[in-house]
Design a protein around this nucleic acid. Structure first.
Length: 472
RNA sequence: GGAUGGGUGGCCGAGUGGUUGAAGGCACCGGUCUUGAAAACCGGCAGACGUGCAAGCGUCUCGUGGGUUCAAAUCCCACCCCAUCCGCCA
């Protein structure tokens, strides 16, 4: 969330920043709308506060008058308070409405880019910063991961489709183990070498948590949610409320219909499945005031991630690249504003170390203003080389969010010796996507006979296995 | 699912209608003492918003929203959340 005070004081920077994001042409119009609302809001507050001050003073005088047995003054003052009461209620209502309108607008605005982010509308404006490692040479045509996995008999999309539909996969045997090995290798690296603390967070979270990291309110359609189904009793009550003119059999029929439609109650226990461990990990500091000495705070987690992939129809339909469920080792840092830029470089280096140790070649890309995620001020994508696809594909994304998420979470810290609190800065990055790492290992370590050699870094985690071969 | 209890400042915790934005303690900050540190003692210390060059002043906030009242942390209602016990269950 952007700071309204900052917008008020830096309107041109606001428009410029917003125009460089996807918001584009409406930026100026948005600014005007926001400033107008803000002005009305402050005007109402000033008026309201004047009235409240008079009410408070008069109420105190009532007490004093009564104590002094001056009934006449007391009555006169009480009449005065009664007279301004209506105006106060009206202004309270107006102020509340303006407040929530402004909040609604601000909560849907993306973060603004840092100065050194390349300006552009999409990925064509991204800039490659470095290429690391040498892509392997093959004296045969390298296969794609799903060809390898299916031929090995250890990767099954058909059965996954029967269980869950498209964009799911079942891994078996050595490939299932490879996924676990990759995750453990990454966690061990980050906890014992990079200083991150391992966390095992909830995978189901509340609205407020999703709002904190900015998946809500704007990106609800990209998420999966989990809700307790309506009971028959609740459906009946709801049917009566919704269709008061029906009775008897009519109500029962509508109740059945509500159950069939899987109608949900706003108030009923309702969760979101995390699209990334960034959500629970970053929210670990929500609604708190941290000691500066505890920063930077670094946490990591290996979790499943769930994404609806709305709007991705037709993209990466084959294989494991884009799934509704995948696992990822996530890195999150909570820092002071002074630390965050360095931390961003450090975090990216931590993710790069994973790929280096796995012997995978990759490149680091800085995303353009138009290609960055909603909450980011600056993002580095790490793209791993996939010989089967003959392309670099994103395997990690490291973002610095400034105080954008901290404002939404109310996450602050107290600088040493200071009286006031400040918002923390938050950063998140994949360290790295496990499913895609598995894809990369398969494609980079494949042999002419379809077998796959285990990279040295993973051998300790594979129980003595050095090569995955077709099972028969 | 059933039954209780509870949500107060960074933390713990007192407070049942009138200078209580809130006792006390801890933590933190400044000072005295000390070679230094600790202890002890003295003092300071909520946040948001509005306004002002500033010092300051004002308003709101004791889970959230509404109500009663001249006046609400305190009374009433609804909702949210947390804990414990029982039941069910990995």
């Amino acid at each position: 969330m952007l700071d309204i005070k900052w917008i008020r004081e830096n309107p041109e920077a606001f428009v410029e920043g917003l125009e460089s994001r996807k918001t584009g042409p409406e930026a100026r119009q948005l600014l005007n709308q926001i400033l107008k609302l803000d002005e009305e809001r402050r005007g109402t507050i000033q008026k309201l506060q004047g009235l409240q001050a008079r009410r408070n003073a008069a109420s105190k005088e009532v007490g004093q008058a009564k104590a002094a047995k001056d009934e006449a003054s007391a009555v006169r003052l009480m009449d005065e308070v009664a007279a301004i009461k209506g105006a106060i209620q009206l202004d309270e209502l107006t102020a509340g409405r303006l407040d929530s309108e402004l909040f609604e607008l601000l909560s849907r605005l993306p973060n603004l880019p840092l100065d050194d982010v390349p300006i552009g509308l999409d990925e064509t404006a991204n800039a490659v910063l470095r290429e690391v490692g040498t892509p392997p040479k093959f004296d045969f045509a390298p296969k794609q991961h799903f060809e390898l996995g299916e031929a090995l008999g250890l990767m099954d999309f058909e059965i996954a489709a029967k269980l869950s539909g498209s964009r799911f996969v079942v891994l078996k045997g050595a490939l299932a183990r490879l996924e676990r090995a990759l995750a453990q290798f990454m966690l061990d690296l980050h906890t014992s070498v990079h200083g991150y603390t391992e966390v095992n967070p909830p995978l189901l979270v509340r609205d407020d948590t999703m709002f904190g990291t900015a998946q809500l309110p704007k990106f609800a359609e990209d998420q999966f949610s989990a809700t307790k189904p309506l009971t028959e009793a609740e459906a009946t009550i709801l049917a009566k409320q919704l269709f008061p003119d029906r009775e008897g059999g009519g109500v029962a029929q509508m109740a059945t219909e509500l159950l069939r439609l899987d109608v949900r109650l706003e108030r009923k226990e309702h969760y979101w499945l995390i699209p990334t461990a960034e959500v629970p990990l970053t929210n670990l500091v929500r609604e708190s005031v941290l000691d500066e000495a505890k920063l930077p705070m670094r946490v990591t987690a290996w979790t499943p991630c769930f994404r609806a992939e709305a709007g991705a129809a037709g993209k990466d339909t084959r294989g494991m690249i884009r799934q509704h469920q995948f696992s990822k080792v996530e890195l999150v840092s909570i820092t002071t504003p002074e630390q965050s830029r360095d931390e961003h470089e450090r975090m990216t280096a931590c993710a790069e170390t994973v790929l280096k140790r796995l012997g995978l070649s990759y490149r680091v890309v800085v995303l353009s203003t138009g290609d960055m995620g909603f909450a980011a001020q600056k993002t580095y994508d790490i793209e791993v080389w996939l010989p089967g696809q003959g392309a670099y594909r994103e395997i990690s994304s490291c973002s610095i969010c400034g105080d954008f998420q901290a404002r939404r979470m109310e996450a602050r810290y107290r600088p040493k010796g200071a009286k006031d609190t400040r918002f923390v800065h938050t950063l998140n990055g994949s360290g790295v996507a496990v499913g895609r790492a598995l894809v990369a290992v398969l494609e980079n370590y494949q042999q002419a006979d379809g077998s796959v050699v285990i990279p040295d870094a993973l051998k300790p985690y594979m129980g003595g296995l050095t090569k995955i071969e077709p099972a028969h």
